[in-house]
Nucleic acid binder design. Structure first.
Lengths: 190, 190
DNA sequence: GTCTATATTCAGATAGAC
DNA sequence: GTCTATCTGAATATAGAC
C-alpha cells in the first residue's frame, strides 16, 4: 500500500510513453505531467534521456525474464509454456494501444543510445533462447504439432508476435493480433 | 536520363528517412540537406509535414499495389507469387537498415496525421487481400503446402514479414530476416 | 522555385535557491 | 528532492525578396 517512489513512477510513465509513442515520440514534459513533478526534477533521477532509456530496458529485460522463468515453473508442457508467452504478448499489445518495448525501440533504432542497442540485442537473444527451449519441449512432449526445427520456430514465432502487435496497433483493432497468431495457437494442443 | 524533379527527389528522400528514422525521427532539415535545397523551399512543394506524409503514403500504396499486380502476371502459381512478395519485403528490409513504410508508420501511429492513419489501414487491407488470394491459389494449385485457411495465412504471413524486418533491424543483421521467414518459405514448392 | 530572415514552440539539459 | 529560471539547439512554419 506504500506509495511508489518517484523514480519508479518515472520508469512506469516512461515505459508507457515509450511503448505508446516510441523513443522519439516521448519527452520529459510528458513524464513530468504524468508523474506530477517538474521537468527539471526528472534530471535528478535520470540525468539524461539516454540513462533513462538504459534503466528502462534493464528493468524491462529483468521483468520479462522473470516472467519467462515463471512460465517454465507454472506450466508443465512446452505448449502450455508457449501459450503463456503468447498471452504475455497479447496483454502487452493492450488492444492495439501498445507495443512491447523491444518492438518499439527496434523501430526507432537509429535514435537510440548505443548502450540501448546492445541491450536490445541481449533482450532478443534471451527471448529467442527461451522460445527455442519451449519449442523443443513442445516437440518432445507432443504439445506443439509439426515442430522440426525449434530454433527456426522461435525466430518465426518472435517475429510473428511482434508483427501481430504492430498489426493490431496499425488499426487499433485487437482482433488483428488474434488473427495473426491463430495458426500458431492451433498447433498447441489443449 | 532526365534529372528528377525536386518534388520527386523530396519524396524519395522522405521515404528513405521515414523508413530509416521513423515519422518522428526525420525532419525537413534532413531532406533539405539530402536534396540540396533549403528547409524553407520544401514548404513550396509540401506545405506541411502532414501533407508530405499523405503524399508519401499515397505513392507508396500505388507503387506497392503495382508490384502486387505485376507479381500476379509474372508468376503462374500462388507459391511463386507469394515468394515474389516475400522477396519484396526482403529487398525492403535492405539488410536490416530499413522497414517497410507501413511498419515504420504503424510504430509511430500516435504521431501521425489522421489521414495517414486511414491510409495505413487501406494499405494493409490491400496487401491482406492480395496475400489471401495468393494463398488460395497456392492451396488450389498445390504450390503452397498445408493451407487450410487462406485469410488466417495472410494475416499470419503479413505479421511475420513485418516482424522479420524488425528482427533484422534490431540487430542490423540480415540473416535474422531469413531465419524468421524460413519455415514459411519451406512450404512453397520449387 | 528558391532564397534569407524570422517566428514560435518544444526538446533535453544546467544552475542554483529552498 | 523539487523548484524557478534559463540556456541552447532544433523542430515546423511563414513572410517577403529575388
Amino acid at each position: 500500500m506504500a506509495t511508489i517512489d518517484t523514480k519508479t513512477a518515472l520508469l512506469n510513465s516512461a515505459e508507457n510513453a515509450a511503448r505508446t509513442l516510441g523513443f522519439d515520440g516521448f519527452s520529459y514534459a510528458d513524464l513530468a505531467e504524468d508523474v506530477g513533478i517538474r521537468k527539471a526534477s526528472i534530471h535528478h533521477h535520470f540525468p539524461s534521456k539516454a540513462k533513462l532509456s538504459v534503466a528502462l530496458m534493464q528493468r524491462y529485460h529483468e521483468t520479462f525474464q522473470a516472467i519467462c522463468v515463471q512460465l517454465e515453473t507454472s506450466f508443465e508442457t512446452g505448449g502450455a509454456q508457449l501459450a503463456g508467452l503468447i498471452n504475455q504478448y497479447k496483454l502487452g499489445s493492450d488492444g492495439g494501444r501498445r507495443l512491447c518495448l523491444c518492438t518499439s525501440f527496434s523501430a526507432s533504432r537509429d535514435s537510440l543510445p548505443p548502450d540501448v542497442v546492445e541491450q536490445l540485442r541481449l533482450f532478443r537473444v534471451m527471448v529467442m533462447d527461451w522460445m527455442t527451449g519451449a519449442f523443443e519441449r513442445g516437440r518432445d512432449d507432443g504439445s506443439i504439432s509439426g515442430v522440426t526445427n525449434p530454433e527456426l520456430e522461435a525466430a518465426s514465432a518472435l517475429s510473428l508476435l511482434e508483427g501481430a502487435q504492430l498489426a493490431a496497433r496499425a488499426e487499433e483493432q485487437p482482433a488483428l493480433f488474434d488473427n495473426a497468431i491463430a495458426l500458431l495457437v492451433m498447433r498447441i494442443s489443449h
